[in-house]
């Protein structure tokens, strides 16, 4: 059995507590976290985290596709200003 399988996904403990508290409260909020190394777990789906990138907290709305990735993957630390042209935004 591969080491990554028996060890399970890594997630900072406090993050689980925050997610549970947020879900229990039922209110709309952005959960601010610094833990970019934590894995996105199924119980985070539907919640919005503000993932710190060293400068600001970028909102990350967790969807099923993101399970197994790390939070840091969705909050880049380098600035990139693209051009809009014909790009579209979809309201989730």
């Amino acid at each position: 059995m591969a080491r990554s399988v028996w060890k399970g996904p890594f997630v900072d403990g406090y993050l689980l507590k925050k997610a549970e508290a947020s879900r229990a409260s039922g209110r709309s909020e952005v959960i601010k976290i610094w833990s970019r190394r934590s894995t996105v777990l199924p119980q985070f789906v539907g919640l919005t985290f503000g993932v710190y990138n060293g400068h600001k907290f970028l909102p990350v709305l967790v969807t099923e596709d993101m399970i197994g990735h790390k939070f840091g993957e969705f909050s880049p630390t380098r600035t990139f200003h693209g051009h809009s042209a014909d790009k579209r935004a979809k309201r989730a």
Binding site: L58, P59, V60, L61, V62, T63, M66, E73, F74, S75, P76, H81, S84, K87, A89, K90, R91, A92
Partner: peptide, 12 residues
Amino acid sequence: IAVHNYGAGDVI
């Protein structure tokens, strides 16, 4: 002032 998408939905 901007719309971003870093892979976790659009952000205004």
